[in-house]
Nucleic acid binder design. Structure first.
Lengths: 204, 204
DNA sequence: GTCTATATTAAGATAGAC
DNA sequence: GTCTATCTTAATATAGAC
């Protein structure tokens, strides 16, 4: 039987880890990954650099955990659209709108997560999560194809293409900072509906 | 008047630089960016590590130059589709096909350039070149919109979305290595034509 | 358990011999 | 002009004091 820490001890460890992660989130939101050295995160958390290593094996693990923490929330928000009423196309469009509007509300952070040059460990997480987003979209698309609402297509391919399209369409406005985001979301939704091949694209 | 090296000297420097870059291309095609340490590139080129610094300011510059060298060719191939006859949608579809087929012919290298975790300097070049691809597509789309062939839309947004879609749709098959690429290109072209909003998507 | 101050270390970069 | 061997350095990671 494996050793387990007493619950109170484990809770302390978790709390400290969360504390560090929250500091990292603040730093990422302000300065992107460029500002997320171990020393800077420790300072933001109000602890010493050495203490960071009580919770994380190293800088790469911290950067990856930070990414997973934030992007898992986005994935959850997008996945929740699976339960909405309406057609598959509308559910996908709703997911796109949710994703894009959340990104535009925290542009610096969204750019950091989507595209900022960063530790290769972050790139690796990007690949993992993009695949997870793809799977969420693919399930909806597969349902639409099965019901005859959408034309025959590979759900995985269309879903992957959509994930890339959404990300890249946001990168420009997010990076520029000043681009009027008002037109981005409607444009993205129209793009999405057309790409799915439903016949209601013009209605969006 | 600025100093200029004698032509013969400059030619030698250029030749050595090209020699190093060609070695890096071979290494990248075999092992991706993971295999492209300065020492490994020097060994592949048959020179010492020190000599690499006669041609490149450092590892990041070399990695970035390697990226630019290879991706500039792809950009050129895609841009050449602007001169094809036919509708804007068909020109865009041709560009997508060219890009995807070239990637699938050198999958390891294409994955390295598109998505492999790498030096942040490479990520920076990715952002630059994705914008350049976007501009090439945007010009075609703008022409299609102006002629009435395509419905009103932001050419930059659609073009950026397409660039992301193409890249992400290829990442999966390229990373898996074994996925049947036979269905990828037709699927991508259908996706593209639908997303543009022309009325000939089903004809592709 | 947390801090300070130090050590590591793995590439990358360079200097000097040939 | 090129190589070998050395050195730097910028963090990261750790050890030991409190």
């Amino acid at each position: 039987m494996p050793y387990r820490r007493p619950p109170a001890v484990q809770a302390r460890l978790d709390a400290r880890r969360d504390h560090v992660l929250e500091a990292a989130v603040r730093l990422l939101s302000r300065e992107g990954y460029g500002g997320c050295s171990v020393a800077a995160i420790a300072a933001e958390a109000g602890i010493s650099t050495g203490s960071v290593y009580q919770s994380f094996a190293g800088k790469s693990e911290l950067a990856a955990a930070l990414f997973r923490t934030l992007v898992a929330r986005e994935l959850e928000a997008v996945a929740a659209c699976a339960d909405l009423p309406g057609t598959a196309a509308h559910r996908v469009a709703a997911a796109v709108e949710i994703f894009a509007s959340r990104a535009l509300q925290a542009p610096r952070r969204a750019f950091a997560l989507l595209a900022e040059p960063a530790d290769p460990a972050v790139d690796t997480e990007r690949l993992v999560f993009r695949r997870a987003f793809r799977d969420v979209y693919a399930a909806q698309i597969a349902a639409g194809v099965a019901s005859g609402e959408l034309p025959p297509q590979s759900p995985e391919l269309t879903a992957a293409a959509l994930v890339g399209a959404i990300a890249e369409a946001l990168v420009g406005p997010l990076a520029d900072g000043d681009a009027d985001p008002g037109e981005v979301i409607p444009g993205l939704i129209t793009f999405t509906l057309r790409a799915l091949g439903g016949h209601d694209a013009a209605d969006a």
